[in-house]
Structure formats: C-alpha cells, structure tokens
C-alpha cells in the first residue's frame, strides 16, 4: 500500500458516496446515467468474484464489499425507488457498443485464459469506458449539476492516482500489470476534457454548462 493507492481508493469511495447521497438527499436521480451505474455494478461484480477464492486483507475485502453494495444500491435508487425522476430519454448511449467489444477484447488479451481471469480482465476494460454513457448524457443536455461534477471529479481522480501508484510499484516493488496500466491510461484520458472544465468553471464557482 502506498499513498497514491490509498488516496485513489478513498477518492473512489468518496465518488460513490457523493452520488448515493446526492440521489438520496434530493430524492432524484436527474442528470445521472443509469446505464453507467449498471456498467459499474457489472464491473465490481466481475472483478470481485475473487472475494470467494482468495483473501488479501481486511481492508481489501471490506472495500470490495462496500463498493459492490453501494453500486447495487445506486442502481436500485435509479431504477426502482426514484425511477420517476430518471431521465431515460437523455440516457441514450448504446451500451452494447461498449460491452460486446470489451468482452471480445478480454477473451483475446488477458494474463491467463481462465474464467475468473477473463472476468477480471473484462472488468478492467469495461471500467475504463463505463463513464461514457454519463459523459454522453452531459454532452446531450449541455449541463451538469455541481454535485454531479464533484462525483465525476473524484471518480476520475481515482484512476489518475492509480497511475502514480503503478509508477511507484514499478520502481519500488518491480510490480507491473500491463492490462491495468493501459486501461487506466485510457480511463484517465477520457476524463481530461472534463477535468479541464471542472478546474476552469466549477472550481471558480460557475455551473458546468457547455456551449450550445
């Protein structure tokens, strides 16, 4: 464990909790892509199946359980409890265009050709693009609530911090996971445009709105 990985995990946790609280307190999931949240629930489920096969640490197990629990709670709030506030018309990204190629890639490029390992690889690839329905929704409506931008910032920072973690682990532990690194780079690049808008607009007290 190093500081980048820990702050990355905490940033990820903060993102998940910010989103849950936003929906719960406002009793609304307006502006949130249910499709991205379903993808994240799939990501956690596919990746953390190793909860059943290997134990790493109490920290590792607890975080996994919390992430999975929160992901399903978020999907439940969007598609069941506050379904009436879900903006399905604007959440029109075709997720099959992500899931199918990513599934194929996971079968082709993985560390070991075994079911659990392919599912882990699938989750890594899928996570890197799972935010696209959310970013697509914002580009379609042209705006995002400030609390939603805080969620996106924390979520984007998490993988960015992991990149530093991988540099650290490469130098100090000789640890090197090409699949995670490449996917993490892709994931971080997808947030760059958003990071720019967050710093130039939201941090200066303005609402995030895109020019028409």
């Amino acid at each position: 464990m190093n500081i980048f990985r820990l702050t990355g995990d905490l940033s990820h946790l903060a993102a998940i909790i910010i989103l849950l609280l936003k929906i719960w307190k406002s009793r609304s999931c307006a502006g949130i892509s249910g499709k991205s949240q379903i993808l994240f629930a799939i990501v956690f489920t596919a990746r953390y199946l190793d909860l059943l096969t290997s134990f790493i640490s109490v920290y590792n197990t607890s975080m996994k359980v919390i992430y999975i629990g929160c992901a399903y709670a978020t999907v439940y709030l969007i598609y069941a409890k506050f379904r009436a506030t879900y903006d399905g018309n604007h959440d029109s990204f075709r997720v099959e265009f992500l899931v199918v190629p990513v599934g194929g890639l996971a079968v082709l490029i993985n560390h070991t050709f075994s079911p659990l390992e392919i599912l882990w690889t699938f989750s890594i690839y899928l996570e890197s693009v799972a935010i696209l329905p959310q970013l697509f929704m914002i580009s379609k409506t042209g705006e995002a609530e400030t609390i939603t931008t805080h969620y996106l910032f924390c979520l984007g920072m998490y993988r960015t911090l992991y990149l530093f973690n991988w540099v650290w682990r490469f130098y100090f532990e000789g640890f090197f996971d090409m699949i995670a690194i490449v996917a993490g780079l892709v994931q971080t690049v997808l947030y760059c445009d958003f990071f720019y808008l967050y710093v130039t607009k939201v941090l200066k007290g303005k609402k995030l709105s895109l020019p028409a």
Partner: peptide, 10 residues
C-alpha cells in the same frame, strides 16, 4: 505466479 494471477488492488 503460475495459473491465476493474484490481483491485490481494488
């Protein structure tokens, strides 16, 4: 390691 890799990150 042989076989299944141990993924210790989240």
């Amino acid at each position: 390691p042989e076989g299944e890799a141990l993924h210790d990150e989240l």
